[in-house]
Computed example of a mutant assay.
Amino acid sequence: MAKPRKVSNLLALAVLGTVVQQPMHPYEIASVLRARGKDEDMEIKWGSLYTVVRNLAKHGFIEVVDSRREGARPERTIYGITDVGVAELRDWTRELVATPQPEHPRFKAGLSMLPALPPGEVAAALRERIASLESMIAAQEAEAATEDVPRLFLIENEYELAVRHAELTWVRGLLAELTNETFPGLAAWRHWHATGEIPSEYAELADRGSTE
């Protein structure tokens, strides 16, 4: 079970993972995170960066180690990680790797609403998804083949590629069930959309949780 954290925004984890290498000012932190594509690994709201940095400093995870001014630019505060911050970085990372948490991807949300579409439209949408996944996988594999970076620093990309391969296999299987007429209850589903008459087994589900 995930434990409560004093600064729980995942951007805070990204900041700690950046300043652990060397002290930086917030603008430099943002530049490094963008260059490393961390906004593809986790949801990052760039507008909250300075607030996250201040909160990390407030709770002792990072501290001001220097400040500098370059020309007419405003003075920039340089932050370094503390021992407490290193411990938080390690503990948080360990928790994320070890403890599965409920996640809510958009695809799962769409699948939960699948009865709203007739089978033919679902099949067409799945074909579109398959084409997109195939393109994304090909591009990612081509990029990986040209990367001259130790595997340790690309492991999240490897995971994402494996997940996309698994999703592609599953979506192809679902599409096959729809096209070869082996999906359970397909006839009732199709009849519902053709006539507007909800099958009895669907009606029972619709009544669950009703207070009337």
Rank of each mutant, 00 (worst) to 15 (best):
A2P: 06
V7K: 08
S8I: 13
N9Q: 01
L11R: 10
L11S: 14
A12N: 02
A14K: 02
L16C: 01
G17K: 06
Q21W: 12
M24Q: 10
E28Q: 04
E28F: 01
I29G: 00
A30P: 00
V32G: 00
R34D: 01
R34A: 01
A35W: 12
G37L: 06
K38Q: 09
K38Y: 08
K38I: 08
K38N: 01
M42C: 02
E43S: 10
I44R: 03
K45M: 03
K45Q: 14
G47L: 02
V53S: 04
N55M: 05
A57L: 11
K58C: 10
K58M: 03
H59I: 14
G60W: 02
E63M: 04
E63N: 13
E63C: 07
V64F: 10
V65S: 04
D66S: 05
R69K: 14
R69A: 08
E70K: 03
R73M: 00
R76Y: 00
T77W: 10
I78L: 04
I81G: 07
D83F: 05
D83V: 01
V84Q: 07
E88A: 13
D91K: 02
T93V: 09
R94D: 12
E95Y: 05
E95F: 11
L96P: 04
A98Y: 09
P102C: 13
E103A: 08
H104A: 15
H104V: 10
P105S: 10
P105C: 07
R106H: 03
R106N: 13
R106G: 15
F107S: 15
F107W: 12
F107H: 12
A109F: 12
A109C: 07
G110E: 13
L111T: 11
L114G: 14
P119S: 08
G120A: 09
E128F: 12
R129S: 09
A131I: 01
L133H: 10
L133G: 07
E134P: 08
E134N: 09
I137L: 03
I137N: 06
A138F: 00
A138I: 01
A142K: 10
T146C: 02
V149D: 03
P150G: 11
R151H: 09
E156C: 05
E156F: 05
N157D: 09
E158F: 11
L161N: 10
V163M: 06
E167I: 09
L168R: 15
W170G: 12
V171C: 08
R172C: 04
R172Q: 13
L174R: 15
L175H: 14
L175G: 14
L175F: 08
A176P: 11
E177Q: 10
E177M: 03
L178E: 10
L178N: 11
L178S: 07
E181Q: 00
T182R: 09
F183C: 04
F183T: 01
P184R: 03
G185V: 03
L186C: 06
A187I: 05
A188W: 09
W192S: 06
W192R: 06
A194I: 00
E197P: 01
P199M: 06
P199S: 02
E201P: 08
R208C: 13
G209P: 02
